[in-house]
């Protein structure tokens, strides 16, 4: 992957997000139950899915590091988790906004999906402090990879357990899709938004990986030049 490959990916993500959001407002029909407020579904749910998948991918890269994948695997694990944390914040905010307009409350503690997602988010909030607490880069990478693997395995288990629970207040739109009851325009719009958010996520991940790997290369050049590092060293960011 080079800088050259980022430009078409960036353009593609902007186009897809624009198309997806336009379809959400202009193509998808109004929901008979929730009306216009259901439009948040096309933003909130794809972000949530991509965030959870990102956490799992972070765990996979963590496993790669533990199996001898090198610092590149640790870097990718870190970036995937970092990006997923940003998306998770978006999920919580958009979910709260949707809850406010649909239920009249920003948050409900009796809603399993909300609380379980909050638990996952809070779990990953400990990732950077864990890294920062370990000075030695290799020990830091190893501990962070173990965390990424365990937490990454927790994500699908947590999701499956919540889905199997009996009491629901949250709309189970995806299960409706499995039943074939989701209207085609809604399904097409949802899948378009899902692809758009996924491509945007992949673009941002590559930007961050490129930024950090370039920093590493500069640092290595500084060492070869025999001078002090110009970049502050103590960080939760993986060290090359």
């Amino acid at each position: 992957m080079t800088v050259r490959g980022l430009r078409p990916l960036s353009i593609l993500s902007v186009v897809l997000v624009a198309v997806g959001f336009a379809m959400a407002f202009l193509y998808a029909p109004l929901d008979t139950d929730q009306g216009f407020r259901q439009k948040i579904f096309y933003l909130h749910v794809p972000i949530g899915i991509v965030a959870l998948i990102g956490f799992v991918i972070g765990g996979i890269h963590g496993l790669r590091y533990l199996r001898g994948g090198g610092s590149e695997a640790d870097l990718r694990s870190y970036v995937h988790i970092h990006q997923s944390q940003i998306l998770a914040v978006s999920v919580l905010i958009t979910g709260a906004i949707w809850g406010k307009t649909a239920w009249g409350a920003w948050w409900r503690w009796d809603e399993p999906f909300l609380v379980s997602f909050l638990i996952v988010f809070l779990l990953y909030c400990t990732y950077q402090p864990l890294r920062l607490s370990i000075d030695d880069p290799r020990r830091q990478a190893r501990a962070a990879s173990v965390f990424a693997v365990v937490a990454g395995a927790f994500v699908p288990i947590n999701f499956a357990v919540v889905r199997m629970a009996d009491a629901y207040l949250h709309p189970r739109t995806l299960s409706n899709a499995a039943d074939g009851s989701m209207p085609t325009p809604v399904l097409v719009t949802f899948l378009t938004c899902l692809v758009a958010i996924s491509v945007l996520y992949a673009t941002l991940v590559r930007y961050e990986v490129l930024s950090k790997s370039t920093t590493f290369r500069l640092r290595a050049l500084e060492r070869r030049a025999g001078g002090d590092d110009l970049i502050p060293r103590r960080s939760a960011v993986p060290q090359a």
């Binding site: 959001f21 336009a22 407002f25 202009l26 929730q34 009306g35 216009f36 407020r37 439009k39 948040i40 933003l43 909130h44 972000i47 940003i86 914040v89 978006s90 905010i93 958009t94 906004i97 949707w98 406010k100 307009t101 649909a102 945007l200 941002l204």
Partner: peptide, 30 residues
């Protein structure tokens, strides 16, 4: 114009401002 016409018809009684706020929050974060 057709897009702007849609914007003009965002229903406030069905959470229109909240929907717009959700999308704006996401775009601002990006």
């Amino acid at each position: 114009p057709s897009v702007l016409a849609q914007v003009d018809t965002i229903p406030e009684d069905s959470g229109g401002p909240y929907v717009i706020a959700a999308y704006v929050v996401f775009l601002v974060m990006v």
